[in-house]
Structure formats: structure tokens, C-alpha cells
Simulated assay, not measured.
Amino acid sequence: MDMTNILILTVGTRVKIVEYFKALPHVKVVCTDASLNAPALYFGDVHYQMPRFTDPTYLDRVLEICEAEDIDGILPIIDTTAFMLSQNQQRFSQKNIKIITSPPEAVALSYDKRKLARFCHDNQLPTIPTFESLSDFKCAREAGQIDFPVFVKPAIGSGSVDNYKVSDMTELEAVLVDKTNMIIQAFVDGPEFGIDAYCDLETGELVDLFVKEKLLMRGGETDKARSVDQEPILSILRDLVRRANLRGPIDVEFFYDHGQWLISEINTRFGGGYPFAQACGKNYPQLIVNNLNGERNQVQNFEYPLNMILMKYPEVVVSSMDSNVLLQSKVG
């Protein structure tokens, strides 16, 4: 059987994702990062140091690696590279290389939270009330549509950077005075849930999913979670997948507030909490490889064990500065 060659960009600390692909038969994993101190680099079969994605030569370098390693599919791990690749898919499709993410219009919903809010409003999908300017918020508040507290965050960004809970107008104006491209959202105090799902790259059909209630967050990623039933949220997710034309691995964030499921964010890539899904029996890397080999994935049964408590823990990777070779990996 021929090898399936996967290029994972900006692997950073996502060691588990690399290991899941490495565990599959007849798969070669090529990893890249701008830093040679990215631990996940050393868990693939081959690794390359890359310029940062802002470098004008970045895409050319990606193509060079694709040609050198006979790459079948490219997996972006972070939003910025997913957005860049989606905007340049034709350069890769001409060489029969698949970008493992959604079409550009769908990736834009992940990249820019303003576009997601508009999309949900236009398609009557439940979401958190969102305002793109202070003046819009003031008008809505005067009309009795929203009040404090509110949540302020960048329209484009990740990792919970520059996120603020704001309690009054004075504080809100102070937060916004020296910042641009911020959004104002209703503050939701209900439990937060994350859905790791896979949509077939060929058909766009929702093939599999895993739902977790977030128990503890750290740096914008889920640190502890509990597996929960998918049934209450399934119809909304199916509607979202169909209307947004989502493809590949996705991570959708929901809040449950006063009996209503509210879409919070979409990530058109593996979420940081995906290892929880794999630990409960899911295998989206295999679904990706199936698609790269021209197979359409059949819809799975959506089953997984419930009420499993899922916890992350740190590990230590040691490599040689002289050879950039992995020497050991151990629990820290």
C-alpha cells in the first residue's frame, strides 16, 4: 500500500496530534514550526524549521516541502495558517495537495468573530448577542436589549488574550479607548461546552462528533472536561455544518444559558481539547487519511462513554542543540 504523507504546520506543543497520525499504518508525518524549540517537531518522521507565517516566502517554502516530501495533505493547526492556506488553496490543488480545512468563507467565520456573529444572525442560528462598536452597544442598551456585565474581546484573536469582563460604562470606555477591532458580547455565566467534530472533506457531511463540558480552562484551552451526551446539541450542529459548509476537523464552542444553546466560536481545525475525544474512542486522523486516499467516510454512530473526566498533564521533551534530535520524552 502506498504511503499517505501528511504535512502538519506550526505544530508547537501539539505532540498528541502528531502521535495519532504516526500510529496509523502507511502514514508519514512531516512537521514544521518557526522554532526548533517546538516539542512536537521531534515526534514526526521528518521536521523542518520554517519562517513565520508573516514572512512573504512562507507559502513558497510550504510548497517546496510538499514537493520534497511528496505531500498529499496539509494540516494547519492554528487559525492564522488555516486562514492563509484557505485563501491560497488553488496553488496547492494544482499539485493535487489537499488543504485539510474548510473552504475560505467558512474559515473566515473562525478567523473573525464579527463575521461569525453576522452569519449566525443571518441564518437564525442561536449565538451570543454581539456588538461591533461602542455606539451599537449603547443603542441596544438604551433599547433594553442588553445591559452590564458584558464581555469584551478581540474580533480576531485566540488564547483568551485581551479578554475582559466589564461591569459598567466607565470601565467599558476605558477598556476600548486604546484598542481597535474589539467586540462587545453579552456576558454568559452558564456552563461552556466544546464539540470536536469531523466533516467529510468530500461530501461535507457531519461524520462524527464528541461533546465535552469544560470544567477548567488554561490559556484558552480546555484543561479538564467531562464527556456529555450529544443529543441536545446535535440538530444545531448539523444546521451549522450545512449552512457554513464546514469540512475536516472542527471545534465548536457553545454556552448553555437559560435553557438555550448559544454558539460562541468556531475553529476550523483541531481544537486544543481534541485529545479528550481520541481518548474516548474517536479517531479523526484516520478519517482524514481516508479522505486523502479518495474514500468518503461513512457517518459514525456518534457514541462514546459518558461522564468520563478528562485531564491534561505536562510532559518534558529533551533534544540536543547540536543535532536537533529527540533524546527523550518524559512526564514532568
Score class of each variant (00 low, 15 high):
Asp72Gln: 13
Ala277His: 01
Arg269Cys: 01
Ile6Met: 11
Asp45Gln: 10
Ala197Thr: 08
Thr222His: 10
Glu253Ser: 04
Val211Lys: 03
Pro126Tyr: 02
Ser329Val: 10
Phe148Ala: 02
Met84Asn: 09
Leu134Trp: 04
Asn267His: 12
Ser323Trp: 03
Lys179Ala: 10
Val15His: 02
Phe270Lys: 01
Ser93Asn: 14
Val325Phe: 05
Val325Asp: 04
Glu295Cys: 08
Pro249Trp: 09
Pro275Arg: 05
Glu265Ser: 00
Phe187Pro: 01
Lys113Phe: 06
Glu64Tyr: 11
Ile78Cys: 07
Glu69Gly: 05
Ala277Arg: 02
Arg296Ile: 14
Asn307Leu: 07
Asn37Ser: 14
Tyr284Asn: 06
Thr101Glu: 05
Leu287Asp: 02
Val289Gly: 01
Ile195Trp: 05
Gln49His: 09
Leu326Trp: 05
Thr222Gln: 11
Ala40Trp: 03
Phe83Leu: 06
His26Asn: 15
Gln300Ser: 07
Lys22Asn: 10
Leu109Trp: 03
Ser167Phe: 15
Val166Cys: 00
Leu292Met: 06
Leu327Trp: 08
Ser86Asp: 06
Pro76Glu: 04
His121Gly: 13
Glu173Pro: 05
Asn5Phe: 13
Gly272Val: 04
Ile183Pro: 00
Val188Glu: 00
Glu213Lys: 15
Tyr284Gly: 00
Ala23Trp: 06
Ile97Ala: 08
Asp79Gly: 08
Tyr274Lys: 05
Arg243Cys: 09
Gln90His: 09
Val317Ala: 10
Pro76Tyr: 01
Tyr198Cys: 06
Ala106Pro: 09
Ser102Arg: 10
Ser158Pro: 06
Lys282Arg: 13
Asn290Pro: 00
Glu205Arg: 15
Arg218Pro: 12
Ser93Gln: 15
Val331Arg: 10
Leu209Asn: 03
Tyr42Ala: 02
Tyr48Thr: 08
Arg243Ile: 12
Asp178Ser: 08
Glu171Ala: 15
Asp72Leu: 09
Val325Ile: 07
Glu295Gln: 11
Gln328Gly: 10
Asn293Phe: 05
Asn324Asp: 08
Arg141Ser: 13
Leu287Pro: 03
Val177Glu: 08
Glu142Leu: 12
Val30Gly: 00
Thr80Cys: 12
Asp33Leu: 03
Lys98Gly: 00
Val331Ala: 08
Glu253Cys: 01
Asn37Lys: 14
Pro56Met: 11
Asp122Ile: 14
Ile195Ser: 04
Leu234Gln: 15
Val161Lys: 12
Asp122Glu: 14
Gly259Asp: 08
Lys282Tyr: 04
Lys113Asn: 04
Lys22Ile: 07
Val316Met: 14
Leu310Cys: 08
Lys98Val: 09
Asn5Gln: 10
Pro104Asp: 10
Val289Glu: 00
Ser329Asp: 10
Ala197Gln: 09
Leu134Ser: 01
Lys153Tyr: 02
Arg238Ala: 06
Asp112Ile: 14
Asp322His: 12
Leu172Arg: 05
Pro149Leu: 00
Phe210Val: 09
Val46Pro: 09
Glu132His: 14
Arg52Thr: 15
Glu192Met: 02
Gly248Ile: 04
Ala225Cys: 11
Ser227Pro: 10
Phe43Arg: 12
Lys138Tyr: 15
Val299Leu: 01
Lys95Gln: 13
Met308Val: 11
Asp251Lys: 06
Ser160Gln: 00
Glu221Leu: 14
Met311Lys: 08
Ser35Asn: 12
Ile250Thr: 06
Thr81Gln: 07
Glu19Ile: 13
Ala38Met: 14
Gly44Ile: 13
Thr10Gln: 12
